[in-house]
Structures are given as structure tokens and as C-alpha cells.
């Protein structure tokens, strides 16, 4: 007997729910006051891993949509950014470009992950690294325009490179584990889980 694979009612609301819940996930990463990773005394805010994870886990379309939703709701005044920030001010500040860059981070990371049938760690590392680089590509010129000096902006941003490099690796590892726990998440329809 030939088995037709189950025609699961792929619910139109499944995408909406994932987009909304992932936007909330990125917000929650910011609510948690920060992690003391390794022996460092400085808390590390995880929120900017969010867009990388959104792309790497949900795929380009839904990942980007969730980041856009998060930023839009932040802009209208919900305190969804780390430290309870929200409103228009974070976008108007010098690091506003890094926020807008999150959209491209999710998009690029998602596009790379989708190319792989079963995304493994190398693909995911490539995806999260590329995602971070496009964020810099938006954020640094924005900062440069703000301060009137692109070179200085680039130098200034070097401070964040070590921390961000760590987060890129962590995001890739986390995404790999999640893909193993719930296969088909990036591409397939939502799977019901008990």
C-alpha cells in the first residue's frame, strides 16, 4: 500500500503565531539582565543574538518578519529592547543603524540556512557570521554619518567584535541544537508537538 504523507492542515495562522512569538522571544532575551559568561565580570546582553536566531531557526521570510514586528512595536512605544528601552529614541541614537541592521541579519542568515537541506553547524556558522556582518554594514556607516567620521566609527565598533564573535558562535550552536531537536523548523510547516 502506498502511503500518502499526511495532509496536515497547514494552518494559515501557524506563520503568524511563529512571527509573533519569535518577536516576543527576542524581547525576552533583552529583559533578562544579562549573562555572566565564562569568568568575565561584565554581563553580556544576549538580545542581538535574537535576529540571528530568528533567521537561522525560522528561515528568511518568517525570521525577517519577526524582527520587523519587534522593531515596529518598539518604535510605537513598547519597551522591548534590552534595559527596557523603547520608543523612537533608540532608532534616533548613534546605534540606530545596528537596530535596523537586525532586519538584514535575519534575512541573510535565513537565506543561507534555507539553502541547506539539513542545516549543520558549518552552514549555521556561515549564516550567523554573515548575519552579523550585514548588521555591521548598516550600523557602522550610520554611526559614521552620526559622528561625521566613518573611520572613527569603524574603530569605535571594534570594541564589540570579541563579544559579538562569541555570540555568533553561540547562536550557531544553539540553532544547530534546536534544528536537531525539532527538524524541519526552518523550512517545513509548523509541526504539532505534544
Amino acid at each position: 500500500m502506498r502511503r500518502v504523507s499526511a495532509p496536515r492542515a497547514s494552518l494559515p495562522t501557524a506563520d503568524l503565531a511563529r512571527i509573533v512569538v519569535f518577536a516576543a522571544f527576542i524581547a525576552v532575551l533583552g529583559i533578562f539582565p544579562g549573562f555572566y559568561v565564562g569568568g568575565s565580570g561584565v554581563p553580556i546582553v544576549l538580545q542581538n543574538m535574537g535576529p540571528l536566531l530568528a533567521g537561522a531557526i525560522l528561515g528568511a521570510r518568517r525570521g525577517t518578519a519577526s524582527v520587523v514586528l519587534l522593531l515596529a512595536l518598539t518604535a510605537i512605544g513598547l519597551p522591548l529592547l534590552s534595559g527596557g528601552r523603547g520608543g523612537l529614541a533608540p532608532f534616533a541614537g548613534p546605534s540606530g543603524g545596528f537596530l535596523l541592521g537586525w532586519i538584514l541579519s535575519a534575512l541573510v542568515a535565513g537565506l543561507i540556512v534555507q539553502r541547506a537541506e539539513r542545516p549543520g553547524l558549518p552552514t549555521l556558522l556561515l549564516a550567523t557570521t554573515a548575519g552579523l556582518l550585514v548588521d555591521y554594514a548598516i550600523g557602522i556607516p550610520f554611526l559614521g554619518a552620526y559622528t561625521g567620521d566613518l573611520g572613527a566609527a569603524a574603530v569605535q565598533s571594534l570594541v564589540f567584535v570579541p563579544g559579538d564573535a562569541g555570540k555568533v558562535v553561540a547562536a550557531a550552536v544553539v540553532a544547530a541544537l534546536v534544528h536537531r531537536a525539532l527538524p524541519g523548523t526552518a523550512t517545513g510547516p509548523a509541526v504539532r508537538s505534544e
Binding site: 500518502v4 499526511a6 495532509p7 496536515r8 492542515a9 494552518l11 504539532r192 505534544e194
Partner: peptide, 15 residues
């Protein structure tokens, strides 16, 4: 059971 119950609401369609 859950699969059957969901069919009543069209959340799962029978194969």
C-alpha cells in the same frame, strides 16, 4: 485522541 478531536475543528484533516 487529540488527532481525532482536532479533526472535529478542522485543525487536522483526515488522510
Amino acid at each position: 485522541k487529540s488527532t481525532l478531536a482536532r479533526m472535529v475543528n478542522g485543525l487536522v484533516l483526515p488522510a
